[in-house]
């Protein structure tokens, strides 16, 4: 696996990792502001490793614990992982069950998006795994910095850090856009997810948009 792209994926995610440090700092600061203990903030980054759901959980840690709500919100915010897993299955199918379980452990958006343009199946998985560890490492570094030095950094929004992730995704969208055949799925998914997002709570718009995009891609394929 290491020969086949692990370190390539690791280093290719370096620039994104630099920005993940900024997100980690933001998480550390937000957690401290909300009164979470230093240990909880840092351990959560290491073992949950899913930033959006960590932010979403903040309010649930105050007051009596509602474990069901914690579970459901975490699943909903991270539901996009389900889709990544389904789309990676053809690449993972020939690997052992254990290997599959280890490979998805650090599966996260940025390496997944980066690897979409890699044609070779095994290399694609190795890139995602290697990139995932870069993101994990930088997420930890950022979290610790945020917890220890958070107070003195000021407003990270002014530097445009919060725009980094959406910009990265948009750039990746351009690289996977294949002209006319992408048009219908992209427009359909965009409209469907936006309408759902504006109408219903709970982060399911990601699933809805992708399902519509996938379905339109099937319909389009059958007409060719």
């Amino acid at each position: 696996m290491r020969k086949g792209g692990f370190w390539d994926g690791f280093w290719r995610l370096g620039p994104v990792g630099a920005m993940v440090i900024a997100f980690g700092i933001a998480w550390g600061v937000a957690g401290k502001d909300a009164g979470l203990s230093d240990a909880l903030i840092i351990v959560m980054s290491g073992v949950v490793f899913a930033g959006a759901s960590q932010f979403a959980s903040i309010e649930l840690w105050a007051g009596p614990m509602n474990y069901l709500a914690l579970f459901l919100i975490t699943v909903a915010v991270n539901a996009r992982h389900l889709l990544m897993g389904t789309t990676l299955y053809p690449d993972l199918a020939h690997q052992s069950r254990w290997r599959q379980m280890l490979s998805v452990m650090t599966m996260t958006d940025a390496p997944y998006a980066m690897a979409q343009s890699e044609p070779d199946r095994d290399r694609r998985i190795a890139l995602i795994v290697g990139g995932g560890w870069m993101i994990w490492l930088t997420w930890m570094i950022g979290t610790v910095i945020g917890v220890v030095f958070g107070g003195i950094l000021g407003d990270t929004r002014a530097y445009g850090f919060d725009a980094l992730m959406p910009i990265f995704f948009s750039v990746m969208l351009v690289s996977v856009f294949k002209g006319r055949s992408s048009l219908l799925p992209f427009i359909g998914a965009g409209v469907a997810s936006l309408l759902w997002y504006l109408s219903f709570p709970g982060n399911w718009h990601v699933i809805v948009g992708a399902l519509v995009g996938g379905a339109l891609n099937v319909v389009q394929g059958e007409q060719e």
Binding site: M84, T87, A163, G190, Y197, H205, A210, G213, N217
Partner: peptide, 28 residues
Amino acid sequence: LTPAVRRMLAGMANTVLLAVVIPYAWEG
């Protein structure tokens, strides 16, 4: 993994990124 399922997965793999970005652009 029929051809239709593959097309479904390929379509989802690309559009899921779009669905993640949209709220940022809308709320930002």
